[in-house]
C-alpha cells in the first residue's frame, strides 16, 4: 500500500507539481527579472574546460533529449525503425554515445565549477544543485540503457503512453510502476530537473536565440578602429 502511495506521488503528483511550479515561477521570474533569463557566461574567466564541457554536454544532451522527444511524438515510427535488429542497434548505440558525451561534458563542467577559483567565485548554490541533478539524470539514463536495454523500444511502448497520459491530464502510472527502480529513478530525476528550471540558469534554454536563423543580416561596425585611423 505504501509503495502504491509512493508511486502515485512520484509519478502523478510530482510531475504535475514540477510542471506547475516551473510554469508559474518561470513566468514570475521573466516578469520580475527578465535579464536573468540567461546562462550568465563565465567564458572570460576560463575557456579551455568550458570548450570541452559545454560543447560536448550540449551536443550529447541535444541528441539524447531530441531522441526522447521524437519517441514521444512518433512512437510507432520508432518501433518501425527498431523492427530491424541492426537499425535498433544503430539507434541504441548512437544514443549511448550521446549520453556518454553528455556525461563527459557535465563532468568537465562540474570540475570547472567546483575547483576553478575564478569560476567558483561566480558559482551559486543553485548552479551546484543543477549540475548534480543533471549528473544524476545522465548516470541513471546510461544505467537504464546498459542494464535494461533496448530502451528505445520499451520507452515507445510503455513510457510514452504514460507520459502522454500525463500531458492529457489523465495520468496512467500503471504503465510504468512495474518497471525496475533504475528507469523510475531516471524519470523522477527528470521531473526534478523540470522543477529546477525556473530557479536555475537552466531557464536559458527557453530563450535560445533561434531567430538569428531567419532575421535580416546586421552589419556590425567597430567604431573605435575607425576613430583610431582618423
Amino acid at each position: 500500500m505504501a509503495n502504491g502511495f509512493l508511486n502515485t506521488f512520484l509519478f502523478v503528483g510530482l510531475p504535475y507539481m514540477a510542471l506547475a511550479i516551473a510554469i508559474a515561477v518561470g513566468i514570475l521570474r521573466f516578469r520580475s527579472r527578465p535579464f536573468s533569463y540567461s546562462s550568465l557566461s563565465s567564458q572570460f574567466l576560463e575557456n579551455e574546460q568550458l570548450f570541452w564541457g559545454s560543447n560536448l554536454f550540449h551536443w550529447g544532451l541535444g541528441w539524447v533529449l531530441g531522441g526522447h522527444l521524437v519517441g514521444l511524438l512518433i512512437p510507432r515510427t520508432v518501433l518501425w525503425w527498431n523492427a530491424n535488429p541492426l537499425r535498433l542497434f544503430v539507434l541504441e548505440s548512437t544514443a549511448l554515445i550521446g549520453a556518454l558525451l553528455a556525461l563527459f561534458g557535465v563532468s568537465a563542467l562540474m570540475v570547472r565549477r567546483f575547483y576553478n577559483k575564478r569560476v567558483v567565485a561566480v558559482t551559486t548554490p543553485m548552479d551546484r544543485i543543477l549540475l548534480t541533478l543533471l549528473l544524476i539524470q545522465i548516470l541513471t539514463g546510461i544505467d537504464t540503457a546498459l542494464r535494461y536495454r533496448w530502451g528505445s523500444s520499451w520507452y515507445a511502448s510503455a513510457a510514452v503512453p504514460y507520459l502522454r497520459s500525463l500531458l492529457l491530464f489523465a495520468p496512467r502510472p500503471e504503465f510504468i510502476v512495474s518497471l525496475p527502480w533504475g528507469p523510475k529513478l531516471h524519470m523522477v530525476s527528470g521531473f526534478l530537473v523540470i522543477l529546477a528550471i525556473p530557479f536555475t540558469r537552466l531557464v536559458h534554454f527557453l530563450v535560445v536565440p533561434i531567430w538569428y536563423l531567419w532575421r535580416k543580416p546586421q552589419v556590425v561596425i567597430w567604431n573605435r578602429r575607425t576613430g583610431a585611423r582618423s
Partner: peptide, 21 residues
C-alpha cells in the same frame, strides 16, 4: 504491439542479442 526482442532475449534472436528489461 512491440516486438518481444524489446525486452526479452532467446537463443539466436537479434543480431546483437535481445533486451534485458
Amino acid at each position: 504491439g512491440p516486438a518481444c526482442l524489446s525486452c526479452h532475449s532467446a537463443s539466436g534472436s537479434g543480431t546483437f542479442g535481445g533486451g534485458r528489461l
